[in-house]
Simulated scan of single mutants.
Amino acid sequence: MATLSRTVRIRNPALFICDIQEKFRTKIYEFPKLVSTTNKLVRAANTLNFPIYISTQSRAKLGETVSELSPHLQGPNIKAVVDKTLFSMITPELNAKLPSDPTALDAIIVGIETHICVTQTTLQLLGRGYRVYIVVDGVSSVNPGERKIALERLRDAGAIVTSSESLLFEILGDANHESFRAVSGLVKETVEETKGALDVFAKI
C-alpha cells in the first residue's frame, strides 16, 4: 500500500460532505458557520472541477442535505450521493466510486459529527492509504468538546488539520493558475464568514 507524506502539497483534491442535513440545524454547535465554509468549498470545487462525494445519515428521518448547498451540488463532478446507516461515509456504493490507487485522491472532509461520522470516515480512508485533510472551520459536533478531542485524535492518526482558505490556496499553488482570479474572488467574498468560522472553530 502506498504511503503519502503529509509534507507533500495536495495534488488530487476531492471534497467529502458528511451528513450536513436539515434536522441538525438546531443541534450542532455553530451549524451556520459550518454550512458557510462548506458552501465556499463546494463553489471552489465546481470552479476547479474536482470531485465531490456527499452522504446523508438516515435521510428519511434526518432530512436532505441543507438547502443552502443544494444549488451548487449539481454537475459532472458530483461523483456519489449516498444515504447510509453506517457512520463512515465509505459505504459499498461510495467505495465503488473511489480510485483504487490512494495516490489518485486526497480527501477533504467537512461535515458532522466530528467525533463520529467524520472520525470513522477519516480513519477508514487513512487505513486504506489515502491522504485526508480535515477542514477545521468545516466540521462540528453537538458538543464542541467532542470536536476538540476528535481533531486531536485524527491529527495523531495521520490526518492533516487545516483551514479552508489555506487549503484553497494550496490547491491553486500559483497566482498564474487559470482559476486564481475566481477562487481568490470567492475568498474575498466570504472573508467575514471565514473569520467568524475560524473565531469559533480554530480553538482546537
Rank of each mutant, 00 (worst) to 15 (best):
P32I: 14
E64S: 08
R147F: 06
V161R: 00
A14I: 14
V135G: 00
A175R: 12
F24P: 06
T121Y: 06
S70Y: 10
F50R: 08
D137G: 12
A197F: 11
M89E: 03
I28G: 05
G196P: 03
T194K: 03
P76T: 06
F50S: 03
N77F: 15
T122D: 06
E165Y: 07
E30Q: 01
S179M: 14
V142H: 13
A175E: 07
R181Q: 15
F16L: 05
D174L: 07
E165L: 03
A107Q: 02
R128W: 07
Q74Y: 05
L86N: 01
I52R: 04
S164Y: 11
D199S: 13
A157P: 01
E146D: 10
G145V: 13
T162C: 11
T122A: 10
I112G: 06
A157Q: 00
A157W: 02
L34E: 01
R155E: 06
G63Y: 02
I54V: 13
I17V: 15
A150I: 15
V161C: 09
E178N: 12
A104G: 06
N49P: 00
G111Q: 03
A45E: 07
I28D: 15
P144S: 02
L168T: 09
D156M: 14
N39D: 09
Q124H: 04
T122K: 12
S70P: 04
L125M: 02
A197Q: 13
I109G: 00
T194C: 12
V183I: 09
V161N: 07
A2C: 08
P144C: 05
E178H: 14
E170I: 04
E192I: 13
